[in-house]
């Protein structure tokens, strides 16, 4: 029998295949509520990624929008919605069309780095992993982005 390092959950969300070392940043974006029961796993072995992190949230089903907000730092994450210990729904994360207030613009001359304001990046599915700053109009790859 496969050894379970983290207790299974009855109802909630499991996020698997988070790059090792990024679980805390993923949680910082998802902002669990004070009533959520959260299990964090770090450095699990993975065939595809060698090492990976994992998050289980008991009692809360994350929406696709909430899940997509982690797409920049966990691009290959797999999300399972669990109901009565069974996987009810599986999905992958996708970069949303509009990313507000999550990342800093890497262009030091961008107005977002000079004024107290929220950054907005736009993304088009045809552009792969590229994002365009709504303000300075520069294009960056997801890997260049700095999370707030």
């Amino acid at each position: 029998m496969k050894e379970l390092k983290v207790d299974p959950i009855k109802n909630g969300t499991v996020i698997d295949h988070i790059p090792a070392g990024r679980v805390q940043r993923v949680l910082a974006i998802l902002k669990p509520r004070s009533t959520d029961i959260v299990m964090m796993g770090m450095n699990f072995s993975s065939r595809a990624m060698k090492k990976k992190d994992i998050i289980k949230i008991e009692g809360r089903e994350l929406t696709q929008n909430e899940v997509n907000s982690i797409a920049l730092i966990a691009p290959h994450a797999k999300v399972s919605i669990i109901r009565e210990y069974q996987v009810a729904q599986k999905s992958r994360v996708e970069i949303p069309n509009c990313i507000e207030g999550l990342v800093v613009c890497p262009n030091p001359k961008c107005i977002t780095n000079a004024e107290p304001m929220v950054t907005i990046f736009n993304h088009n599915e045809s552009e792969g992993r590229e994002l365009t700053c709504q303000y300075c109009e520069r294009v960056f790859t997801a890997d260049e982005m700095i999370h707030i």
């Binding site: 262009n107 001359k109 961008c110 107005i111 977002t112 780095n113 000079a114 004024e115 304001m117 700053c133 709504q134 303000y135 300075c136 109009e137 520069r138």
Partner: peptide, 24 residues
């Protein structure tokens, strides 16, 4: 700063013309 005119256009309800924003 690049993007300054776009930002101002979101803050005010009169028309804004960009007469140059950095290298943008």
């Amino acid at each position: 700063n690049e993007g300054a005119a776009r930002y101002v256009s979101e803050q005010v309800d009169i028309p804004v013309v960009n007469a140059g924003d950095g290298a943008n």
